[in-house]
């Protein structure tokens, strides 16, 4: 399946809600671990990368991994240096950014061409 055919905005939005909910609820590791880790690896990036229209699925996923990890590092480091260190809160902030990106995708899709 092409990465362009995946409804990334919806997938990211669902993952951005599911990951913090599972983490805050202390869900069993078998469910929580894959959802949270895959979200942190791809979610924030795939919230924004489809806006670029790169086309190639390998390219989109690769750039998305780079953006996701950079966002994760930036938010986590900012929370640490701000004295507000809390992994669940950090996850909520990252998820909020991802939801923002997904919303931008919806806005772009809804706009007449």
């Amino acid at each position: 399946m092409s990465a362009r055919r995946v409804p990334w905005a919806a997938v990211v939005a669902v993952a951005a809600v599911a990951a913090p909910v599972l983490a805050l609820a202390g869900a069993p590791a078998a469910v929580r671990l894959p959802v949270v880790l895959v979200f942190l690896l791809l979610g924030p990036g795939m919230a924004f990368v489809p806006l670029l229209g790169l086309g190639d699925p390998v390219a989109e996923l690769t750039v998305a991994v780079g953006i996701s990890l950079a966002i994760d590092v930036a938010v986590a480091l900012a929370m640490l240096y701000a004295g507000a260190w809390s992994p669940p809160a950090t996850l909520v902030v990252v998820a909020a950014l991802a939801l923002g990106g997904a919303a931008l995708q919806w806005v772009k899709e809804a706009r007449p061409a």
Partner: peptide, 17 residues
Amino acid sequence: WPGFFVLAGFAAKAAGI
């Protein structure tokens, strides 16, 4: 240069590792 460690710690805690 704590970036990787902060990321790994955050991801591990959030994922329940």
